[in-house]
Write a protein that binds this DNA or RNA. Structure first.
Lengths: 143, 143
DNA sequence: TCATTAAGTTAGCAATCGCTAACGTAATAA
DNA sequence: TTATTACGTTAGCGATTGCTAACTTAATGA
């Protein structure tokens, strides 16, 4: 499983949460990728047993895909909170960094991060809600 | 500049610090890459004005390459200290994670990390020295 | 009905970055 | 002196992952 695959899985999970029906074209818009790029990626994820596409083009995560997505989502939100708590950077920046780190952090380091947040609630309990996913992309006009 | 290029630059800097004369073959051994892979990479770094190779095969960082290497090295050591301080993971794990994160962390988040370490000396002043670079690779027999 | 649009797919290109095979050259050793 | 070894390089493979062009099919609408 490559990082790019994880991004696709996470995006499907996120859009599902946000709007319900998720098609390839929605993923393409969210990630600023072309439809063919998404089409191929979905094919690979389907072959890996992570995603299903039903007759109307709607994408569904399999149980395996859902487990992966939930784990990625937890990493994403936790790391965003952690970075904001520790570094006081803007939500959008913390979000962007978390989005990269979530793919490479080791399990034990991530456990340590969670433990740290539990032990230091004073560092983050007053923070406002994190930025929405990919909000930094909104102004972009092309890619 | 890609992540892989940064790894080469950092490795040259590190080996220079450790042994003095650095040739392509030393870089290959350190990174567990083949000699041709290193040869090509050095060619690219040379074209980018970051590295020079003198007649005996010795590699030198240009001023530009040295500045980049120093910035990467600072990120590497700082992030390793930070991860150890915050998560209490082994040096080798912190090192490995730092080695990935150093390529992707945003400048402002890194500034925040440094600020955090300054403000919380109690979290890390008692830690033992970090693991040596790439020490986790030592047991590996092939790649 | 017929044209347009939307969405997915196929085919094929390009960049990155690892690899092996094989070559040239210089130093080392028998 | 000749064979071996070390090291750099060239040529070319293959996976990943983005892209555009162009096709199919289904829905929309004049």
């Amino acid at each position: 499983m490559q990082e790019s695959g994880e991004d696709y899985i996470e995006t499907i999970y996120l859009l599902k949460k946000r709007k319900g029906l998720v098609r390839s074209v929605d993923v393409a818009q969210e990630l600023h990728f072309s439809r063919p790029s998404v089409s191929r990626a979905i094919g690979i994820l389907r072959d890996s047993g992570l995603v299903l596409m039903n007759s109307d083009g709607g994408l569904e995560l399999t149980e395996k895909g859902m487990l992966l997505a939930e784990s990625l989502y937890e990493k994403h939100t936790t790391l965003t909170r952690f970075l904001r708590a520790v570094t006081r950077v803007d939500s959008s920046i913390a979000e962007k960094d978390a989005c990269r780190i979530e793919h490479i952090i080791s399990p034990s380091t991530f456990e340590g991060v969670k433990q740290f947040l539990r032990e230091h609630p004073e560092l983050h309990e007053h923070l406002t809600d994190p930025a929405e996913y990919h909000s930094g992309d909104r102004q972009r006009t092309h890619r």
